[in-house]
Design a binder for these strands. Sequence first.
DNA 1: CTGAAAGCGCTAACAA
DNA 2: TTGTTAGCGCTTTCAG
Lengths: 369, 369
Amino acid sequence: MCDGVNQQSRREEDFRQEEMTDNVSQTRRQAMRAAITIQDVAARAGVSTATVSRALAGSNVVSAKARARVMEAVTETGYTPNFAARNLRARRSMMILVVVPNVANPFFAEVMRGIDDELVTAGYDMIIGNLDNLVEREARYVKLAQSGQVDGVLIMSGRVPEGDGRAMNELDLPMAAVCAAIPGLAAPQVAVDDRRASIDVAEHFLGLGHRRFGYISGPEGNINETERYSGFIEGLAVAGIGCEAVTYWHGLFNLQAGVEAGRDFLSMADRPTAVYAACDEMAIGFMKTVISAGLQVPEDVSVVGFDGIEFAEFMNPTLTTMRQPRYELGRTGARALLEEMNGPSKGERRIELAAPLIIGKSTCRPRFV
Amino acid sequence: MCDGVNQQSRREEDFRQEEMTDNVSQTRRQAMRAAITIQDVAARAGVSTATVSRALAGSNVVSAKARARVMEAVTETGYTPNFAARNLRARRSMMILVVVPNVANPFFAEVMRGIDDELVTAGYDMIIGNLDNLVEREARYVKLAQSGQVDGVLIMSGRVPEGDGRAMNELDLPMAAVCAAIPGLAAPQVAVDDRRASIDVAEHFLGLGHRRFGYISGPEGNINETERYSGFIEGLAVAGIGCEAVTYWHGLFNLQAGVEAGRDFLSMADRPTAVYAACDEMAIGFMKTVISAGLQVPEDVSVVGFDGIEFAEFMNPTLTTMRQPRYELGRTGARALLEEMNGPSKGERRIELAAPLIIGKSTCRPRFV
DNA sequence: CTGAAAGCGCTAACAA
DNA sequence: TTGTTAGCGCTTTCAG
């Protein structure tokens, strides 16, 4: 810049003043400290800003002596680089946008912990894009992704966020999908095989001798829901059981949905003997409702959930559930994204993590086989 | 900048080329699109970059005609402002750092939803600073806060984050504490009165006729823990009961701590008849353990938790607990921070939200009074 | 190994 | 109402 030198000497004067007058007010000093730039450090160390930048970036083309003086000046001034400036110049932000359907959902919370652990190790931080289960909220994050504010995106919502006529995958920004594979997306996808898992649930029920079933669904259109339902039906079909033997309750992956399904179940004359809920919350809501009404789980009705949240094994009875490796999902997803950022392997790449069926006390043989 | 004009005309040529050759590869076009700047828009609209900037900022000193042309050019080019550049120049980032003890904790997850709702309304996004319950992780976020990357900080960890010899409150950055008041911090503090709440718990127990107690603690030094414990002791003291009547189990706000306390409880000869856990998870872990061992809650032992997490009322028996207004805590905390950012009211300012005692089925009179 | 200088893309002060 | 221009604080060629 044109007056780089003038500015530099002005800064030097500032410092001298600060040293001389020790009776500056606390607030004023803080303001000054907040304004410390690489120029100040350079002036103090008696080197150029380029050298400071190099020393701080750990470049090995800088002499030990210069480096030492820079570090000393940094300590003395309490300098912290301005990331906004660095980001602009270096065209990276060290920020990852994590799009999550609902931050308040404990399932995603643990996945986020895995993501965070991996990202922090690599020096990245996490911006949360909370959709709050609202599609309208997607647009905001498409814009954010487009704005040069993030270096990559992790999507947990099972669909490509869209808004203002743009879809996030048109942005030429590294991305990865976690927890829910997005069909056709040319990016790494880290998830459990929902379909396979649901077939396992069906087999478990069939093995116990069940013939009449209930299914509590997730939100319509949700990719996890779709896969879980069709997998369940597919698994039953093996035993020649069609979907007419499955009572379907519509749900939204929350406790309340389980409660409502439970109420409807109680009102039925010819009740299913086994109920599969597409997530643990719904299974728990269901169990609570039927137990409160005087029924026994599993004797009167077997219940299976999905996710394997921590509370599942603290229920009474403990819940049989498909355990998703939540922390690992997050960790692996973040790692896949980081790899994608280093060397874009462009193309769909599925990484499937195993989800074991955890047998709890909520399932048994039906009373009358 | 020195060659602003030259650059502008170069850009214009780029556009003409794009219009003429429609057989550009998809990737190339994306790259071009990603590089669209305010200059391109200005050129297209036939105005200066300043006008574009004003039009986009919603300034009212711009003519309707100019505004229309800018908007048209924005649409045509698919322009999205580069936030990194805007942040640098405007000295704001529209980002708030949210320091959370543990992202995976469902309690904080719901608080975060409240925070997010409030922030999004005001146009801010949320960077998560996850401490993972590790003090060492604080330094990272002190640095981030110092780097000009965030406009404010929301602290949920109950202590001022420190690192590299700096404390976050020395940064002259607007902040607010949520969920846990930080004694002496000159900033808004939004929390429940833990002490008062614990006195209520003690009164509830005493009212039922209990005389021997158990307490499952949070992490040592944690401000919520300290207040809850001393409040409980204070409440008991009113009835002339000293802390020798309280068995103390050390815990860490997790399910496992409750399990361990439960095991120890089972091994006791002269068991307490009422147990207060400093959070619901520990209460649930405790209940599960003693019930599995054949005891009855509340007949053999009354249990009270803290937080009022959603699962509390899905336990069997439903848990008696102090319900914290989690969403409201987040929302109010975020609002307080935004106010602080507008007009620094500097100084400690406590906002206390009520925590009602929710009476569940986990407490009753002791068997032998 | 070091420094000078050119910007990253944007906003805001100042002119016109 | 609009345009010109000077940077925000940093990194990175390009010379030396």
